Simulated scan of single mutants.
Amino acid sequence: MSNNSKELSVFSAYVADLLEEKADQYNQPEFIPHDPISIPHRFTRKQDIEIMGFWAAILAWGQRKTIINKCLELSQLMDNAPHDFVLNHQESDLKQFLNFKHRTFNATDTLYFLHFFQDYYRQHDSLEYAFSSHLKKGDVTVENGLIGFHDLFSDSENFPARTRKHIATPLRKSSCKRLNMFLRWMVRKDDKGVDFGIWNEIKPAQLVCPCDVHVDRVARLLGLIKRPVTDWQTAMELTASLRSLSPTDPARYDFALFGLGIEGFATPAILPVRK
């Protein structure tokens, strides 16, 4: 074996061990209170978890404390019973949402989300169908589910053009980090108590790792990503690298990459950066 091959072998082993260690460290209940996933953890009813989990994921940009506070505000506006509210609210109940805003997400977006939820949950028991019904036999990832959900979400004469930017799709080359994070919450199953694992039609093996700024930076340092830009293909490249470590649960390492990013991880100088 050449010196270069030996160096890459050592580095690959280092990466695998590091990701395993950090995934175990951060995939713990202590992770919950300071993360947007704490919002759906306030509920026990499946539909409430779905609705508030979806909203928490979509609003997840900026400081985590602010994200959590805005989601709590939304929950309070729905009387802390989101499923009951979206099914049964009247027109007069919507006035209180006119002042809701988080960054570029405003009242127009909020009202359409409520419209979508009401229309959808009057026909379906779970939000999973909105994604899983678009998957095809043999799909390795949730790509078709994300594309289909985007089209379903926007398929209304009341759909505001401005709201499209809040629901990503691979067809626009987005990394879909927020939707992938939401799917991780709903789909992944383990005994750690962080992710919910309440959906069954989508398999953990099909999940795509959310590619946020922390994950992206650390993944590049570890040689898990080579693509120079961050888009859907980058998320797929990262997930393929992680699938080589865990074919049935690649998104598990989202905990590790995100945690390392928060820690300010830098590649040790004694090991080569994989090219």
Rank of each mutant, 00 (worst) to 15 (best):
M1G: 11
S2W: 11
N4L: 11
S12P: 12
A13N: 12
V15S: 05
E21R: 15
D24A: 15
P29Y: 08
I32G: 03
I32Y: 13
H34D: 14
P36S: 03
I37P: 08
I37Y: 02
D48L: 12
M52C: 10
A56N: 08
L59G: 07
W61S: 02
G62L: 08
G62M: 10
Q63C: 10
R64Q: 11
K65S: 08
I68N: 12
I68E: 04
N69S: 15
K70H: 07
C71H: 06
C71F: 04
C71E: 01
L72Y: 14
L72P: 13
L74D: 05
L77Q: 01
L77S: 05
H83W: 13
V86H: 12
Q90S: 13
Q96V: 11
F97R: 09
F97A: 08
F97L: 07
L98F: 08
R103M: 09
T104R: 06
N106W: 08
T110Q: 04
T110N: 11
T110R: 10
F116R: 01
Y120T: 07
E128S: 09
E128Q: 04
E128D: 07
F131K: 06
S132L: 04
K137P: 11
G138P: 07
V142W: 12
N144C: 09
I147K: 15
G148D: 12
G148C: 10
F149Q: 02
H150P: 05
D151E: 10
D155C: 06
S156D: 02
E157R: 11
K165D: 05
T169V: 10
P170Q: 03
L171P: 15
S175Y: 06
S175H: 13
F182K: 00
F182T: 00
F182G: 00
L183S: 01
V187C: 03
D191L: 08
D195L: 03
F196N: 14
N200C: 08
K203Y: 03
P204M: 01
L207K: 00
D216F: 03
A219K: 04
L224W: 06
R227F: 06
Q233A: 14
A235C: 05
M236P: 09
T239C: 08
L242S: 08
R243Y: 05
T248Q: 12
T248P: 03
R252W: 02
Y253W: 04
E263S: 08
E263A: 15
G264E: 02
I270Y: 05
L271S: 00
K275F: 06
